[in-house]
Design a protein around this nucleic acid. Structure first.
Length: 491
RNA sequence: GGCCCCUUCGUCUAGUCUGGUCUAGGACACCUGGUUUUCAUCCAGGCAACACGGGUUCGAAUCCCGUAGGGGUCACCA
């Protein structure tokens, strides 16, 4: 155990074999928050001892996502890679071999697990395993690379890491690490294992889930082979012989399916802000000890502690995340919402931004209070650029054809009123329609607004009618009303 | 299967260490009602949990033992 007076040093040590997963993000968050709370140092390290699966691209992506989250490491550009530190591990291996604690085996080197091991975990408490339940394990592979177990122990000691905060899947491995520390004469760090994040069905949240969801969609859709994928690979995918992401994506597109968000980048694309994601993630397994749920990184910086991390796994609830997100969006000053929405649209919906042109702020304003994510306006507002081709039967009946076509008559009146109306501003349009329903002796504004919504959107839902008309512009508005009148009357 | 770990509303959880104030609190979801030109928002209310069985005790969600269920790990992956 490190001296309590020594400064805290933590690290986040992903293996660069893929995108940053939300589970990894939470681990990084916990380590980051703990470090900031104790004015320590938060380090990043790449565990690339698996030569085949590691890539520089993955490193870049992880860096990009950590940066987006705002979990910046203190070692900047000086990020250790295990592949570049081989002599350090060789030295440790030699020491263990010459001390009789490790031995050669088929070109690899194995460590002897011949004693009882006990350690204290900051979350799970005391853990003890007897020697008879332990097996010797490889510390250096035949390719000369250390295994993860040796590398972590050597690196953590070399980097002065005092607290190892990582996923619970390493809890059992920790007996190996403790034994290695002892045999090497290295100080044991404080180990802190965090519970896992699960899918709603209780399975572990993983990249595989995308392939699973795509397979289910393909099955439901009658297994149509999506165009861009060559049949042999597609068949292999369906047979679960591969989980290739590009196939999953192609299937999702062909079936209009959203693949489940798993990686930080997925949530970013879905339109969650880092603040919302981090808040939700922090609460998954940690809480401040009272009813407070909404907080930011500054709060964690002053309140986060290892002692309040729970022991049981938790299921990832997207609805609660969405609720947090909607709430965060609702509370943003309008100009902040506008900026964030624009940045998101620039990245993911550039055509939409271009089409909105000068009306972007108006558009942003009308969707702030009805969006759960930065991406919602793109789907909710899609009707602005694609006129309805058919009209929802229920909406038509309720708002147009019922009572002898009362709605259709009102829609025709509305068309005339708008055609003769020149001030195409939201306020003026609202005032005109407000006057119209009274002229027509209707019960309320719905009498004119609802038929109009059906004509403009194909369904009975839209934001406020004034701004909606402004965005659509006069010509398009009248065209859609005429098209609706013609199509519904003909039917 | 061996070993390790976990178990409070459907979900995330407070409460467990320091038994009584817990007829178990909050949040998301869900349901009902209200406001609203639709949707969303907002407001009011409601449903809903101590996995099970033994013990200890005047008293147990809280302590002990067992059972069941779940997760992890047993790779020259991390």
């Amino acid at each position: 155990m490190p001296d309590p007076s020594t400064p805290v040093v933590t690290r986040f040590a992903p293996s660069p074999t893929g995108e940053l997963h939300v589970g990894g993000a939470r681990t990084a968050l916990f380590a980051w928050a703990y470090t900031r709370r104790h004015h320590g140092t938060f380090l990043l390290r790449f565990e690339d001892t698996d030569q085949k699966r590691s890539s520089k691209q993955a490193e870049q992506n992880i860096l990009r996502d950590l940066d987006w989250l705002g979990l910046t490491a203190d070692n900047g550009d000086d990020i250790p890679r295990q592949s570049e530190r081989l002599p350090l591990y060789d030295e440790a291996v030699e020491k263990l071999v010459s001390g009789g604690r490790a031995y050669e085996d088929d070109g690899a080197v194995r460590f002897r697990m011949d004693r009882d091991i006990a350690f204290e975990d900051a979350v799970y408490g005391p853990i003890a395993v007897e020697a008879k339940d332990l097996e010797d394990f490889v510390i250096r592979k035949a390719d000369g690379f250390p295994t993860f177990h040796l590398a972590v122990v050597v690196d953590d000691a070399d980097m002065g890491v005092t607290h190892v905060i990582r996923g619970q899947e390493h809890l059992t491995n920790t007996t190996k690490h403790a034994a290695l520390c002892d045999a090497l004469g290295l100080p044991r760090p404080v180990w802190c294992h965090t519970p896992s994040i699960l899918n709603p069905d209780g399975s572990k949240m993983s990249k595989r889930d995308k392939a699973k969801a795509a397979r289910a969609a393909a099955k439901a859709g009658g297994w149509p082979s999506p165009g861009p994928v060559e049949p042999p690979r597609y068949d292999a995918f369906i047979a679960k012989d591969n989980d290739d992401l590009d196939i999953a994506t192609a299937i999702a597109e062909a079936n209009g399916l959203e693949l489940p968000e798993i990686n930080v980048a997925d949530f970013r694309r879905s339109g969650y802000t880092p603040a919302t994601l981090l808040n939700y993630l922090a609460l998954l397994g940690w809480n401040p000890g009272n009813d407070l749920e909404r907080f930011d990184l500054d709060f964690l910086t002053t309140h986060f502690g290892l002692d309040r991390i729970g022991k049981s796994n938790s299921k990832f609830d997207r609805q609660k995340l969405a609720a947090f997100s909607q709430d965060d969006i609702a509370r943003m000053p309008p100009e902040v919402w506008g900026q964030k929405l624009r940045a998101h649209f620039d990245d993911y919906h550039p055509d939409f931004t271009a089409a909105l042109g000068e009306h972007f702020d108006l558009f942003a304003g009308m969707y702030q209070e009805r969006s759960k994510t930065l991406d919602d306006p793109a789907t909710l507002g899609a009707f602005f650029f694609t006129p309805p081709t058919d009209y929802q039967p229920k909406a038509v009946k309720k708002n147009l054809t019922k009572n002898d076509g009362e709605g259709l008559k009102n829609l025709a009146h509305t068309r005339d009123a708008l055609a003769n109306h020149d001030d195409w501003s939201a306020d003026a349009l609202h005032a005109r329609l407000d006057a119209l329903w009274q002229e027509l002796n209707l019960k309320n504004m719905g009498g004119v607004a609802q038929p109009l919504r059906v004509a403009l959107t194909g369904a009975a839902v839209s934001p406020e009618i004034g701004p909606t008309l402004v965005l659509l512009a006069k010509t398009e508005t009248l065209q859609r009303i005429d098209a609706c009148l013609a199509q519904v009357q003909a039917a």
